[in-house]
């Protein structure tokens, strides 16, 4: 089978899901940036889930759970995504071919571990990676993976493995595409609503989520013993913040970019100043990462209390920031 969607344009993005959402919406006439997709779906967050373990360490996320961004596109663009999962891998691959033959660009949820074009050291068993398929040539699928600079290719057998990987967040062959797009403009109202929701999430009452989650994590870090496990623990935090496709500083820079766009769309110039503050908060996260790495490398003594203090400082700054953000869009 040979099938290429010529209209589709690959775009490089920081994060897989916001990249996929932006590319899909743009392909369907609602030209938006990655930052807009991320902000409009209120995807910025913080969560510390000690009971969910990833290779022995707790889940620490700087954003809302998988599929939140895709679902967040529904209201602002009056669109409906069709999500399909499959019990039988062969049926899942057939359906993908069928949709490609109809000229659709199809989103997939995959495991990172089984994608051969990923760098060896980046291949972990993480099952919620999003990518787009825009064609097929012979046995190879043409893939627009937002976190890669250039379009990629992937053999059918490898793609099948990646789509039907098992474990936490198993994709079950999930594929998706928008059925209709009712609105192609971002409205000021949608922007305000999205910002209000983010402020609500970040300042919410659940102790593991938002600013309170940061304080909880700070408490945990303060109790770490100065040993190998402790160093691995802080390394894990920094990895979630910098390495796992966040655009730097756990999505804080990406959100600053959104706030700048939002200032123009919603006609709220004060959001420009707030974007600048978000940028500074991002710098604070990077300073935390740098400090942690200096300790991991042994250039400084491992001082859990110091790192915990930095995390508490970040929590204070973000608490103040989101209160100001809430006032700005009230």
């Amino acid at each position: 089978m040979n099938m290429i969607n010529e209209q589709f344009r690959h775009r490089h993005a920081a994060h897989c899901e916001s990249g996929v959402a932006a590319a899909l919406m743009s392909h369907h006439g609602a030209a938006i940036s990655e930052a807009m997709a991320f902000g409009l779906s209120s995807a910025l967050s913080f969560a510390y889930l000690p009971f969910v373990k990833l290779t022995g360490f707790p889940l620490i996320a700087y954003r809302m759970p998988p599929r939140f961004i895709l679902r967040g596109m529904a209201k602002p663009f009056r669109t409906r995504f069709r999500f399909e999962t499959f019990r039988d891998p062969a049926a899942g691959m057939r359906r993908l071919d069928e949709l490609l033959a109809q000229g659709k660009v199809v989103g997939l949820q995959t495991s990172v571990f089984w994608l051969p074009y990923f760098p060896e050291d980046m291949r972990f068993h993480f099952n919620a990676h999003n990518l787009l398929v825009y064609g097929k040539q012979g046995d190879e699928y043409l893939i627009s993976d937002p976190v890669a600079e250039e379009p990629q290719r992937c053999a059918a057998a490898d793609l099948q493995r990646a789509r039907f990987a098992k474990g936490v967040l198993a994709p079950k062959g999930l594929l998706y595409y928008p059925e209709t797009v009712g609105n192609t403009e971002v409205t000021p109202d949608a922007v305000r609503k999205a910002i209000r929701k983010t402020a609500r999430i970040m300042l919410g009452p659940i102790p593991l989520v938002g600013v309170r989650g940061m304080r909880m994590l700070a408490g945990k870090v303060a109790r770490l013993k100065p040993d190998e496990y402790g160093l691995n623990y802080v390394g894990h935090i920094v990895r979630m913040q910098e390495e796992i496709g966040t655009g730097g500083a756990g999505f804080r820079f990406l959100y600053a970019s959104f706030l700048q766009e939002a200032a123009d769309i919603a006609g709220l110039p004060e959001l420009r100043a707030l974007a600048e503050r978000m940028n500074e908060i991002g710098d604070g996260w990077r300073a935390f990462g740098l400090k942690a790495v200096r300790m991991i490398k042994g250039r400084e003594a491992f001082d859990p209390a110091l790192l915990a203090g930095m995390l508490r400082g970040q929590a204070e700054n973000e608490a103040e920031f989101f209160r100001a953000l809430k006032r700005a869009v009230a």
Partner: peptide
């Protein structure tokens, strides 16, 4: 070296103060 020659997208402030994507 763990990126295997790939470049990842970060967001940063350019000379005009706009946040832009930087590989």
């Amino acid at each position: 070296r763990t990126l295997g020659g790939h470049r990842k997208a970060l967001y940063a402030r350019d000379a005009d103060g706009r946040m832009v994507l930087v590989p």
